[in-house]
């Protein structure tokens, strides 16, 4: 869902860059107070893993593919602020090194996949947790939030494209939501599998556990 240069007009990419800078600054401030010696390397490892996983496009119907965005994965493992930074680091590297996503559109891509994908996705995860407590609620939360994070990012992307005058909103929104409803299933499956694995082997690294002061190391 990386928007290239040329898709967005200045009336869309300038304000989204401003929002992205504000969000990143806020996340940097919050992360500074959360990180500790044990979790510093985790930020590097998560960035590396999400970058690598994003390279693996999986096929969906109709000659189309999707790949992990990783917003909710980063959010549940590192918390919404550090997780958002991880996604922003990945997006920036993809843009500058691999020509994946445009430099003018980087702000919009950060808004869609970091602010909305991680921040918004994490909110959905917490909301479900508050309704449905316990391990089952966590599982349902991870799966549901992952799926919705992709849908919400696709919706935001559609709004930016429409606002730019690239394509009418009702045309792009239906198409984007339709295809990402399927891609979101892949997102939910991968996120659930990776999250379950980390829960099993190193639950002490998880953000929610750190907040509770549980640390096994």
């Amino acid at each position: 869902m990386h928007i290239p240069d040329g898709f967005l007009a200045p009336n869309a990419w300038v304000p989204t860059w401003a929002i992205a800078i504000g969000w990143i600054s806020y996340c940097l401030k919050k992360t500074r107070s959360i990180l500790n010696d044990k979790t510093i390397p985790l930020m590097g490892v998560m960035s590396a893993f999400i970058f690598a996983a994003q390279m693996v496009n999986f096929p969906i119907a109709g000659g189309t593919s999707g790949h992990l965005l990783g917003g909710v994965l980063a959010g549940v493992l590192l918390g919404p602020y550090t997780g958002s930074l991880v996604i922003a680091v990945v997006l920036s590297a993809q843009c500058l090194i691999f020509q994946d996503g445009g430099i003018t559109a980087l702000g919009a891509n950060i808004v869609n996949m970091s602010l909305i994908g991680t921040g918004g996705g994490y909110l959905i995860y917490k909301l479900i947790n508050s309704i449905w407590s316990g391990p089952a609620g966590k599982k349902i939360g991870v799966v549901t939030a992952s799926w919705f994070s992709v849908l919400l990012a696709a919706t935001a992307c559609s709004l930016e494209l429409a606002f730019s005058g690239t394509i009418p909103l009702k045309v792009v929104l239906a198409a984007m939501v339709g295809v990402h409803a399927v891609i979101g299933v892949g997102e939910a499956i991968i996120t659930f599998l990776v999250w379950s694995y980390v829960m099993k082997v190193r639950a002490d690294l998880l953000y929610s556990y750190q907040l509770m002061g549980v640390n096994h190391e």
């Binding site: 690598a52 693996v56 496009n57 096929p59 000659g63 593919s65 999707g66 792009v172 295809v179 990402h180």
Partner: peptide, 15 residues
């Protein structure tokens, strides 16, 4: 895994 990724356009490219 990445060398075997699907070469098809992603969701946004498809749209």
């Amino acid at each position: 895994l990445s060398p075997f990724a699907s070469p098809h356009p992603d969701g946004l490219e498809r749209v």
